[in-house]
């Protein structure tokens, strides 16, 4: 069993492909670690209670509310934030689609929306408009851009399905 005499616990995290060795107090959330110590302010602190989804990041490929994760419990994990979705300056298809469909107003929820949508696509359980709405229900948009958010995700989902079909 790992016992820690010091209040700072050594952990290793790979964030957007970059490995970090950190010493962190056990009460620091992953969200605070990303924002305050690694200066990755894309993931937003909306409610800080797991109710709004603005803090959504991908942990080992799965979308999770980073505000409810203590960073120490994710020692060794691979984290992807909104800053890590673009590929060598090329926008992630979801980022491009959010712009194309004007899927935001104030933009505060957008990093969480896009990370959540990336998780949704990877899960592969979403095949209809109703399922997009249901499977994006963990991300609130106070501006009410839901229609365009669903359009943006549906667009990427359909083009991926078409590409998959063409490949088969």
């Amino acid at each position: 069993m790992d016992q820690f005499a010091s209040s700072r616990i050594p952990i290793s995290l790979t964030v957007n492909g970059q490995r970090h060795q950190l010493a962190i107090e056990p009460w620091v959330t992953l969200l605070d670690l990303l924002r305050e110590r690694l200066s990755l302010t894309g993931a937003k602190k909306g409610c800080d209670q797991g109710q709004c989804g603005a803090c959504t990041v991908l942990i080992d490929g799965q979308r999770i509310n980073s505000c409810l994760q203590l960073a120490v419990t994710r020692d060794g994990a691979e984290i992807t934030t909104i800053e890590g979705l673009a590929d060598d300056g090329q926008l992630h298809p979801l980022q491009a689609s959010f712009i194309k469909h004007d899927a935001f107003q104030c933009g505060y929820c957008t990093p969480g929306q896009i990370c959540s949508a990336a998780g949704l696509l990877a899960e592969g359980h979403t095949h209809s408009r109703a399922e997009i709405r249901e499977h994006m229900s963990g991300n609130l948009c106070r501006c009410g851009a839901y229609t365009n958010i669903a359009d943006a995700i549906e667009d990427v989902m359909q083009s991926r399905a078409a590409m998959k079909e063409a490949a088969e």
């Binding site: 797991g50 989804g53 959504t56 799965q62 979308r63 999770i64 509310n65 409810l68 994760q69 959540s116 998780g119 949704l120 899960e123 499977h135 229900s137 963990g138 991300n139």
Partner: peptide, 9 residues
Amino acid sequence: GASPQLRNA
């Protein structure tokens, strides 16, 4: 119950 993000954790 909950949301996909919460169910993942």
